[in-house]
Amino acid sequence: MVKEIERAGIPVVHMCTVTPISMTVGANRIVPTIAIPHPLGNPNLDFEEEKSLRRKLVERALKALTTEVEEQTIFEE
């Protein structure tokens, strides 16, 4: 899905936990996430902490979208 959307001309950032799969699938901008059942959250945190963690990850995704890449890139920070 990532690839087809990008092929159509829209930049995509893929947020997922198992980044090797994302690499195989062919995503160009990848942001690693927390865990498979809760990629953008962590139920062990309290609500505010969890939301700020999610915000950090989404901001990283936005950063990825504003960064030119030549090849598949994983944005660890």
């Binding site: 959307i5 159509a8 001309g9 829209i10 950032v13 996430t33």
Partner: peptide, 26 residues
């Protein structure tokens, strides 16, 4: 199937003027 879904989705996104996509996977 995933490819076909995304082709349709992308077409709609383009005509709706979407500039970028965040795609999340579990």
């Amino acid at each position: 199937s995933a490819k076909a879904f995304a082709e349709k989705i992308a077409k709609e996104l383009l005509s709706d003027g979407v500039n970028a996509v965040i795609l999340t996977s579990t």
